[in-house]
């Protein structure tokens, strides 16, 4: 019964019901802020302690892939906002189209993320016993996806960082702990968001969302935008350290 936008038993009016749902989502997002806050703190401190290692780590990331993903995610936020707008003005077909676009963009993001993660695995850049930030420099044959000139550049960069921080390999693991921790948690939120979007899509294909009742679209939208905001911070924090060398 709840899918049709009827009034729940505990509420007196539909307005009260919608207000309650929106308020609940905002409060939930605040808990998310604090959740990400903890790992941001860990990041901030370690970046402060081990700047050379963090700079070196950041330079091993692919700016092209990261930048592309940023654009993708921003675009998905845009389509999500349009989906909310369509539900507010009652354009039922448009809701589905924009939700679908949002989902597609989300999956593009996942695809790129998968490429990035698997590169890091192959390059031995996952924290743990096998971690070796010099792996590609020392074994260029095992890293065919890195061009020779890039490798040269990376080698110089790492040598410089090693000179500044003899324990570079340990501290670079901290950078990658931050990288995998933060992007992993972000991706987890995206997965949940994508699940919610599929649920919305099902509802919108059944024509359930109207200008009078579009609360689910609205609050899932809030969640999706929040996930976007997290990435807006992650991108410069992880990809853009000390790029000017």
């Amino acid at each position: 019964m709840h899918r049709t936008g009827e009034l729940y038993g505990q509420f007196k009016t539909l307005e009260q019901q919608k207000e309650t749902a929106t308020l609940g989502m905002w409060i939930f997002l605040i808990t998310e802020v604090m959740f990400f806050g903890g790992i941001m703190l860990a990041y901030a401190l370690n970046r402060h302690f081990y700047y050379p290692a963090f700079a070196a780590g950041s330079n091993t990331l692919s700016l092209k892939l990261g930048g592309f993903n940023t654009v993708v995610l921003l675009a998905s936020s845009f389509t999500m906002a349009l989906a909310v707008w369509s539900s507010q003005v009652g354009k039922k077909t448009l809701i589905s189209i924009f939700l679908l676009l949002t989902i597609l963009l989300g999956f593009v993001f996942f695809g790129v993320k998968y490429v990035e993660y698997s590169q890091k695995f192959h390059h031995h850049l996952v924290p743990g016993k096998k971690f070796d930030i010099f792996y590609c420099v020392n074994n260029p044959a095992s890293c065919p996806d890195v061009a020779a000139d890039e490798l040269m550049e990376e080698s110089n960069l790492l040598d410089e960082a090693k000179a500044a921080d003899p324990d570079l390999n340990a501290h670079a693991q901290l950078y990658y702990s931050a990288y995998f921790g933060m992007t992993g948690l972000h991706a987890l939120h995206m997965v949940i968001g994508a699940g919610l979007l599929f649920w919305l899509l099902k509802g919108s294909l059944a024509g359930r969302f109207t200008p009078q009742w579009n609360t689910p679209v609205d609050i899932v939208g809030l969640y999706w935008h929040f996930v976007d905001i997290v990435w807006i911070y992650l991108f410069p924090l992880l990809y853009l350290i000390d790029r000017h060398k």
């Binding site: 604090m34 806050g37 790992i39």
Partner: peptide, 8 residues
């Protein structure tokens, strides 16, 4: 405001 921090 507190519980998410212990969670992370």
């Amino acid at each position: 405001l507190g519980t998410p921090v212990i969670a992370i």
